[in-house]
Design a protein around this nucleic acid. Structure first.
Length: 958
RNA sequence: GGGCACGUAGCUCAGCGGGAGAGCACUACCUUGACAUGGUAGGGGUCACAGGUUCGAUCCCUGUCGUGCCCA
């Protein structure tokens, strides 16, 4: 029994349990052993996270594909899991400690802090997983993975060691993006350039050997800078080689104000003559461009800041070297001044000596950390890097060759653009939460990289024994006793960028580096579904790692969807307070409604503007579906055993079978092309505009009428079409369809595992290759998974039924329309006279008397040779349908209506004739287009003739 | 500065070489035997602008204007 009211919450709770208990989503189910695999790896959400709209969209789309392919008989693995999200998680736990006024991270020490994070993960890590389940995500939950799992950590270490051995991971001292708040390096991608209103300071640098005087321009050179405080680290001034103003000065020295350091004026093309003064100060240790300039001219790198972004001058040998006497005093005065305070103080000091020429307001881009929000400092440190340039080459080639393709395709351009200009990837982070880098250092700083501590230690000790740094005896002791080697050999403190482990996700989750059957069967995966914002962070890096370690691209298709925004189109953010919580929407309208809303909006080009109203509309659709199933149930509609829709006899039933087949094809093709909105739209239209509006209405007389073959067949077809709808809708609205599937009939299987109504087009060559590689029976065409009870929609094509039902629909629609136009109240029943009806009409009309009467509010239907005097005359498929309304409607109004119709017909004739009179059109246009135009003309002419007749009759009547 | 999108009904968006579509909103009517979370009908658009290609352009090309995003 279907409940009277649709209550999504009850259904969703119940169906989740049903699916879970039946292991419906388990990959490698015995009944799918011979099926072609279909694999998607979930973009692992952060363990800290809770479900947001982006997840809702992302996972809805993945689930649609997974459920679709599962119903098509594939062995689906949707691999779930979560990401340890280094910085984010560490911050969350630290914040929690602070809120509870517990000792902070540093006070706790690394070991205890990590225990604490694991504890937090155990308590809260399930949140997002449970939320995904509420959305209906059909992941194989038994295979859930976490990027810090033992297995995945093994993969990380293996990859690091091997890349290091291959020379693709190395340690380097260069400028990094330093986050002075989080005290760690971050990668280029984690830096957000934000426009900031600042100033451009024009500073006077005195030329060596001249007496500085603010009034004498030849005694100094003016440099423009946005960061005056870094001048303490200046080691050069650059001018453009072709800038005539400065040519004489190239090679000379200036004396750095306040500091007294003598620095060289160099010619370098980096300096833009049109910008500022045309001369720039060069601070190689605090600016990425200056670093390069410095390299080209052999300038020293002097770091003047510490990790927290404060001036670091006292005891700074680099800074103090070669400074004149008295420099120490200045250093002490400014030591440990925060960089922003330092900017102010240094400018003041410069001004007091006349070193500032002018200050202009200046808007420029300033780098900010995407997590901390603080201004990022280019900072000179030792970090680990991945040689991304080398790894990118095969990753670029794989997309060029089509081994992997993006949908929509234009994202490939973005991908190439970035990959071709890729920079070394800084992978070390000065954090605690993450995969600790498997590198150990000896007393001289020599690095030993190995998969295990034992291995590294033994290498290191062997090396130092050989170098006679220690004796063999000492080596043995240190090998056996951790305490003895402490201080001699130390492990790298740093951890890896979170994205390093995510980059391995498509194969690490399958058990790699172990040689598991899952790796063989499910790699490479089929589709990756993600937002464009992480193409660089994640997709590109998975491509690089996948190709390097697996020799195959990790996925054949990358489907990029857009972002979900609020209803005004603004990006959702906590600070703006415009975040729509998907769980609230699920509570209010149901997961199915949310999913269907997202799917219907998921077109390729636009971001999705989501409002609760949008979800409400789709909940209403679910309600409609619910009620239509109740209708079928109330009329005892069941599919009898052995029912063959293609063999139906009744035109109405043949018609709906045909429409269902068309829709099946449409939905299937749209899903194959990842056109989610088209597929969902097709279902929306079919359910509302075909099944509910017409088929069910037209079927009512048969269902309510006398027992007999007509009633039997109609009952069967109503139920059959309902089942087709449930199947086709299942990927989009899994809960409600599964529920209705269960309660409407005795079923052989869950809907989630029921066969899709349309046969797959067959395995692709890629799938065939995969099958050939896999063990077991290999011919997919004879494998059970591919032999489905299918139909070919050509079997259902029936022009006669189409014409008959089309006539009924047109007739009803037109009568309704004219009644509304003539203001005839629904309570007024009118008669219908089919005038001069053809034999065909006379034959089929009686079959539809009841339904037409009901739907068009008629009292009776009769035939006549001609329309009665003064009747309203409609032209339905070339024949006159007359409503004898003399006295009810105004004859003049009816004349006006007919005149309008005639004018319309005239316009059509004119347009068609104009085209056909154009010789170029007849010669150049496709034959069928010309033919179509001729038909249009004939139809319009015939219509006009009939309308003129009708008008004549009306005139006679008045 | 370089790149990618996008300007279609009041709003949100489909369509993308052969006569303008949906949902919402709006108007009028309807408690008809699945459904008022409903039904029926209706109004509303020089498809941003200007050129070009074409027998034919909302659709392809070029330019202009406007909007959004990404990268420097």
């Amino acid at each position: 029994m279907i409940e009277k009211n649709y209550q999504p919450a009850d259904i969703e709770a119940r169906m989740s349990v049903v699916w879970e208990d039946s292991l419906a989503f388990k990959a490698g189910r015995p009944d799918r052993r011979d099926a072609v695999p279909f694999t998607i790896v979930i973009p692992p959400p952060n363990v800290t996270g809770s479900l947001h709209m982006g997840h809702a969209l992302n996972n809805t789309l993945q689930d649609i594909l997974c459920r679709f392919e599962r119903m098509r008989g594939r062995d689906v693995l949707w691999q779930p899991g979560t990401d340890h999200a280094g910085i984010a998680t560490q911050m969350v736990v630290e914040r929690q400690l602070m809120e509870r006024q517990q000792p902070g991270r540093r006070e706790m020490g690394r070991e205890r802090f990590l225990e604490r994070v694991w504890q937090w993960k155990a308590e809260s890590g399930d949140t997002i997983i449970n939320q995904l389940k509420r959305l209906g995500a059909s992941c194989d939950w038994s295979r859930e993975r976490f990027t810090m799992d033992e297995g995945l950590s093994k993969a990380v270490v293996k990859v690091f060691v091997q890349l290091h051995r291959d020379g693709l991971i190395y340690k380097d001292k260069r400028l990094v993006n330093w986050d002075t708040k989080l005290l760690t390096a971050i990668s280029d991608l984690e830096v957000q350039q934000t426009e900031v209103k600042g100033s451009l300071w024009y500073l006077r640098y005195p030329i060596e050997g001249k007496t500085f005087s603010p009034g004498n321009p030849s005694s100094f050179i003016v440099v423009a800078t946005t960061r005056p405080e870094t001048m303490l680290g200046d080691t050069g001034v650059a001018v453009h080689p072709e800038d005539e103003r400065y040519q004489k000065l190239v090679g000379k020295n200036v004396v750095l104000p306040l500091v007294g350091r003598r620095i060289k004026i160099v010619a370098d093309e980096y300096s833009d003559p049109a910008k500022g003064s045309g001369a720039v100060k060069v601070t190689p240790a605090h600016d990425f461009n200056d670093f390069e300039v410095g390299n080209r001219h052999g300038l020293r790198r002097i770091s003047v800041l510490d990790k927290e972004g404060c001036l670091d001058l006292v005891d700074n040998e680099d800074y103090l070297r070669d400074l004149p006497e008295g420099a120490g005093q200045f250093a002490e005065e400014f030591h440990k001044t925060d960089r922003f305070a330092a900017r102010k103080r240094i400018v003041e000091r410069l001004e007091s000596f006349g070193f500032v020429e002018r200050i202009e307001p200046h808007t420029h881009m300033v780098p900010h950390g995407d997590r901390s929000g603080s201004v990022i400092e280019p900072y000179l440190t030792d970090q680990w890097y991945v040689d991304a340039k080398t790894l990118a080459k095969p990753a670029i080639a794989a997309v060029r060759s089509g081994e992997t393709s993006f949908v929509p395709k234009n994202w490939e351009k973005t991908y190439f653009e970035w990959m071709e200009n890729i920079q070394p990837w800084c992978i070390s982070r000065q954090l605690w939460w993450g995969h600790q880098i498997p590198a150990w250092y000896g007393p001289d700083g020599k690095v030993f990289v190995a998969e295990t501590e034992e291995e590294a230690i033994s290498h290191a000790l062997g090396y130092y024994v050989e170098q006679e740094v220690i004796t063999a005896e000492q080596g043995r002791e240190m090998a056996l006793d951790r305490n003895k080697r402490e201080g001699f050999i130390t492990r790298d403190e740093d951890v890896l960028d979170t994205w390093f482990s995510s980059a391995l996700w498509p194969f690490s989750t399958l058990g790699w580096p172990e040689d598991t059957p899952e790796v063989k069967r499910y790699y490479p995966t089929n589709v990756l579904v993600t937002g464009w914002d992480i193409i660089f962070f994640w997709v590109a890096r998975m491509m690089m790692m996948g190709l390097h370690f697996m020799k195959e691209a990790p996925f054949s298709t990358v489907y990029i969807h857009r972002l979900v925004r609020d209803e005004k189109g603004a990006k959702m953010s906590k600070s703006k307070g415009n975040v729509i919580d998907p769980l609230n929407l699920i509570d209010e309208y149901g997961a199915d409604a949310l999913r269907f809303a997202l799917a219907r909006e998921a077109a390729h080009t636009h971001d999705i503007k989501l409002s609760s109203q949008l979800v409400e509309i789709n909940r209403n659709f679910a309600t409609k579906l619910w009620n239509s199933c109740r209708f079928a149930e109330m009329n005892n509609c069941v599919v009898p055993e052995g029912f063959e829709p293609a063999k139906a006899k009744e035109p109405l039933n043949r018609w709906i079978a045909h429409k269902a087949a068309e829709t099946t094809r449409e939905v299937t093709e749209a899903l194959e092309a990842h056109s989610f909105n088209e597929a969902a739209g097709a279902m929306y239209r079919f359910v509302l505009n075909i099944y509910c509006d017409w088929y069910v209405e037209l079927a009512k007389p048969a269902l309510l009428g006398a027992d007999g073959p007509l009633k039997d067949e109609t009952r069967a077809m109503v139920a059959w079409a309902r089942d087709e709808i449930l199947k086709l809708l299942h990927p989009f609205m899994p809960f409600i369809t599964e529920e209705l599937w269960e309660v409407t009939a005795k079923r052989e299987s869950l809907l989630a595992l029921a066969p899709w109504p349309l046969k797959p087009t067959g395995p692709t060559p890629e799938q065939l290759a995969m099958l050939a590689a896999a063990a077991g029976p290999t011919d997919p065409l004879v494998s059970p998974a591919f032999v489905m009870p299918i139909f070919d929609h050509a079997d259902f094509s029936d022009p006669k039924a189409e014409a008959e039902i089309g006539w009924v629909i047109d007739l009803v629609t037109q009568i309704r329309s004219v009644r509304a136009e003539m203001n005839i109240p629904p309570a007024t029943l009118t008669a219908l006279v089919l005038a001069g009806a053809s034999a065909e009409t006379r034959e089929r009309a009686p079959r539809w008397t009841d339904v037409i009467k009901r739907m068009a509010r008629l009292s009776e239907i009769s035939f006549a040779d001609r329309a009665p005097d003064g009747a309203v005359q409609l032209l339905v498929r070339g024949e006159v349908a007359a409503l004898p309304l003399k006295g009810v409607v105004d004859i003049a109004a009816e004349r006006t209506r007919l005149d309008k119709e005639i004018a319309k017909a005239d316009a059509d004739i004119k347009r068609a004739e104009a085209k056909l009179a154009n010789e170029k059109f007849v010669v150049n246009a496709a034959e069928e287009v010309v033919e179509e135009e001729r038909e249009k003309r004939e139809a319009a002419l015939a219509r006009k003739a009939k309308l003129l007749e009708a008008l004549e009759r009306l005139k006679q009547a008045s």
